[in-house]
Design a protein around this nucleic acid. Structure first.
Lengths: 342, 342
DNA sequence: CTGAAAGCGCTAACAT
DNA sequence: ATGTTAGCGCTTTCAG
């Protein structure tokens, strides 16, 4: 590997001083047009890329945004991260990606690494910020970080004042409920999957219960089944449990698309049909929703907007501009074929 | 945001020189045990993280590996990238993630950004390296990059000498063929989806054709249907075409799991059943394979090994050690329920 | 408008 | 074993 070309080499070849080269590079100070042309020509000739580390050292700015997520294999996360990456790229930032696999120790050491890289901001998606009970040590860690670096989260992190970008869960549940109850002959609504250990799930379940009562339907505890796993297996387990006492709900709300897939399978195995016997709705509208048969009616979000809001909040914070404590993302219902409509 | 603490602050508080602090930080040179303890205590007290940019500037090493991929939302890529991230983290490297969305212009500018960040190595997964006809300009770009930075690819990039880590496509097709032909009553085998524009697909199709003939089966052109889209829609289109002339193959090989999903749907819409009427096999064994009904028999890879090989190749190159031109990943067949076995 | 020089935070000779 | 110092590549005063 050759040693890479530097601003000094460019200056030499262009016959100017390094500061002049620097000036044409940054473009902030006027340079004689003729000189500018010559310098630019040399830059282009070598496709010279100024060393970001040297630049960063001077402005205390790495142009890096660290993003810590639970597991990028989950389509919800990967979709969100692609949006973030896009928004960041457009604004001249690069993304440093870390997966914690929801392991606390991992998260700690990854946070240290991000701060070692002097990322300009950190974004925490999933993992600890999702939990209802913020672990004290974690909050302290984040607070220490906040002294030096803006931290944006999805979820909430009690005891810290990270800025938050979140889905309006209440609105999401409301969209689902309004839709469900607009269908004919709905008497019972089940909610399958998810755990009250996670903040968003508490919001969802509370809203589910409230709306049920407001609409004059009975809340049936056996139809409200939690499950720690947010995947297909979790969905199947939850649905098996719901159907285990012989009663069949008219609709089941799945905590996410993966869970819905398990629910679909469980229903199938019980020799019932979707949507003829049971309707199914879910959250997130990942591509899974349109992959399965029947295609799922699901509450989705504008992921581009979601990622954009996260990144623009981060950059505002980097630029020391004001941002609201919490920004909400508006959900929207995507109607497909998993609910009985006639 | 407070200005972050530096090695000078640590030195001052510990009552030693900066070099001593640096020595305990790097651990390469012996330091008096007593002093080491004191310094370490101060470091711990502030959870001091040495500035990676300053370090990098000195050793010309960023500890960053750039990874350029087509689209991380595709589970094949996200699974591979998670493995890379894991392997990189274990070895003290961080991943800079970029998505090109297979857009050539995008790839170009992202490559420049990675070289601006002075990443220690670049990994190219999907996009240009996958294509049979390497675009000349692209190859030149990569060759220029190679002067300064190791580049590892998945695929092949004619006219460059990037090191390659690839799936053994021939072996993969062989596994499928051997399995298929071990089943009873298989007379005709279709291949659906994928395009000969991509190198791996050429390998696959050639192997498909050869093995067919070697096993004494006829190669039927109408059963070999390409499709540019590697998704569900592409699969449906391809399968519709296969079935359009009235003949029904005994098995259809799908170019990947997504395509297989479309194939499943098309078969269903033609009032045929899988696996009773038609068997289906696919490549990649992403989680999609076990999500759909019936679960897909699919050729998979050890993604952890795949990512590990990519990263260890990168790091060997960074350390100027020898590596083979190409490393192959051994595929393995995962048998599920999409083939008629009795 | 331009060049010389200082300095960002750190490491690695070089002295001691 | 430890402190002093040069210098990594760049930007930004500061003079001129």
């Amino acid at each position: 590997m050759k040693k890479s070309i530097t601003i000094v080499d460019i200056a030499k070849e262009a016959g100017v001083s390094v500061s002049t080269v620097s000036r044409v590079l940054t473009g902030k100070v006027k340079v004689n047009e003729e000189k500018r042309r010559i310098v630019q020509a040399v830059i282009d000739k070598y496709n010279f890329q100024p060393n970001a580390m040297a630049r960063g050292l001077i402005n205390s700015k790495s142009n890096l945004i660290g993003i810590l997520t639970a597991d990028i294999r989950n389509p919800y996360y990967s979709t969100l991260i692609v949006s973030c990456e896009q928004a960041a790229t457009e604004r001249g930032y690069n993304l440093l990606l870390c997966n914690s696999f929801s392991d606390r120790l991992n998260e700690f050491s990854l946070l240290d690494r991000l701060s070692q890289q002097k990322v300009d901001a950190m974004i925490l998606i999933g993992g600890a910020p999702d939990e209802v009970e913020t672990d004290k040590e974690y909050a302290e860690k984040i607070n220490a970080l906040l002294e030096e670096t803006p931290v944006i989260i999805t979820g909430n992190l009690n005891g810290t004042n990270c800025k938050r970008v979140n889905i309006d869960e209440n609105r999401a549940m409301q969209l689902i409920m309004d839709y469900i109850l607009s269908l004919d002959g709905i008497k019972s609504v089940a909610f399958a999957g998810g755990s009250r250990r996670y903040i968003s799930n508490v919001t969802l379940r509370d809203c589910y219960k409230n709306m049920l009562e407001k609409k004059g339907l009975k809340y049936i505890p056996e139809f409200d089944v939690e499950n720690e796993r947010y995947d297909e297996i979790g969905g199947r387990e939850a649905m098996d449990k719901i159907l285990s006492n012989g009663k069949v709900p008219d609709v089941v709300i799945a905590v996410n698309d993966f869970t819905a897939v398990g629910i679909l399978k469980s229903i199938h195995e019980h020799n019932l049909r979707v949507p003829e016997d049971i309707s199914v709705v879910s959250f997130d509208d990942t591509y899974i929703a349109s992959l399965v048969t029947p295609q799922l009616t699901s509450v989705g979000y504008n992921y581009w907007e979601f990622g954009e809001k996260i990144i623009s909040t981060a950059i505002k914070l980097i630029d020391k501009r004001e941002v609201p404590e919490e920004i909400f993302i508006e959900p929207k219902l995507i109607i497909r074929n998993s609910c009985k409509t006639e």
